[in-house]
Design a protein around this nucleic acid. Sequence first.
DNA 1: CGACTCATGTAATATGTTACATGATTAA
DNA 2: TTAATCATGTAACATATTACATGAGTCG
Lengths: 197, 197
Amino acid sequence: MSIKLAVLSILGRKPSSGYDIKKTMQRSPYMPWSGNNNQIYKALVELSDDGLVSGETLHREGSPSKKVYTLTAEGRNELNDLASRPPEPPEFKKPFLLQLASADALSDGELLALVDAYENEVRLQLAYHEGLMRRMESRGDEHEGEEEEAEEETPGDRRALLLKLVYENLVSSIESELEWTERLRSALKKPERREHE
Amino acid sequence: MSIKLAVLSILGRKPSSGYDIKKTMQRSPYMPWSGNNNQIYKALVELSDDGLVSGETLHREGSPSKKVYTLTAEGRNELNDLASRPPEPPEFKKPFLLQLASADALSDGELLALVDAYENEVRLQLAYHEGLMRRMESRGDEHEGEEEEAEEETPGDRRALLLKLVYENLVSSIESELEWTERLRSALKKPERREHE
DNA sequence: CGACTCATGTAATATGTTACATGATTAA
DNA sequence: TTAATCATGTAACATATTACATGAGTCG
C-alpha cells in the first residue's frame, strides 16, 4: 500500500490540489502518512505520468493559483481495484514495548513512573482521536468543499457508516492499550506472586 | 527510537554477532524492525565508532568466523538512559482502514468478503504471536546461548515478567482487532437501522 | 509590521527493503 | 550434490522526514 493509493482515494472523493491532499492526510489518522509536501507533489507527478490523474491549473484572483487534480477513467478503475485487493494485516509499532523489555534494571518506582508516562501519552492520543471522531460525526467530514456535486453512485450513508467504523477501530485500539497499562500496573504492584494461579 | 537502541538492548542481554542480532530481531515482534543485514551491520559500525560497543573477531575451527560485539561502559550507560527516556505513543498502521474508507462503491457481499479476508489475516497474526508467547514461556527465550554467565544485577524473574507482559500487549492488541471485525460485520449486516438507538 | 494560512515546489538526509556476492559447514 | 543454515558485507532502490525557498493574501 503506497501513498499513491491514498492520493487516489482522496481524489476519488473530490478533485483536490496538492495542498488539499496534504491537509486531508494530516487530519485522517487512518492514513499512515504524515502528509509531507515532498511525497505528495512527487506522487501527483507520477500519477499524472501514469495517466491516472489529470491536473489543471486554476488561476484565481485574490488568492494563489492552485493545480487541481482529478481522477481519469483509468484512475477510477485503479481505485476500484484497490478496494477489492487482499487486505494487509495491521502493524503495531510500539517502541515502548522495547523500552519495557529493556527495563529490568529499573527500580519498581521508576518502572511505575514509566508506565504512568506512557499512559499519559496514550490518553492524549485517545482524546485527540475522540475529538476527530466527534467532529466527523457532527459535521459531515470531508464535506466542506464548495462544489456540491450530486453524489452519483453511493447512498452516502454507507460512506458515513464506514468512516464511523474506521474511527471506532482506532479508538478501540487505543482503549485496549489503556486496559493493558492497567494490567501492567497491577502485575508490577504485586510482584512475584505468580507461580500458583 | 532508532534501530541502534534496539541493537544496544540486545547486546545488553548478551554479547552477539551481527547475525545473532538479526535473528533476535526477527523473532522479537516488539522490535519494529525487520532485522535486515544492511541496517544491522551499519548500525554496529556506527555504534563502534561512537564507542558504545566493541567488536572482537572470533576465529573458530569448523565454523565460520564471527565478530562478537559487547557493550562498553559507555554503551551500558546509554542503555540505562534509554530505559528512563519519555515513552513514545504507539503507532497503529492499518492500511485496511484506508481500504475500508474507500470501499463505499462495493456491494454488501463484496464488503463482507473483504472483512472475512481481513479477519483471516488477523487470525494468522494471532496464531503466530500466541505461538511465540508459548515458546517463550516454556523455554526461557533468548536464553539459548551456550555461555551461561551468572546474571549480575537483576533477579531474572522481573525480566521474565516484563517479557510476558510485552507479549500480552501484542496479543491483546490483535484480539481487540478481531473484536472490532465482529462489530464491523454486524454493523454491515443490519444496514441503515441506526437512527433511533 | 509580523505571524499565519494558502500554495507549490526542491534539497538534503534518514530509514528501510530486496537483492546480490561470497564462502564455510551441516543435513537430506 | 543440493539445499539449508551460519556468517559478513555491499549495491540499488524505495520510502519518509526535515528543512529550505518563494510568493500572495489575511488577520491582529
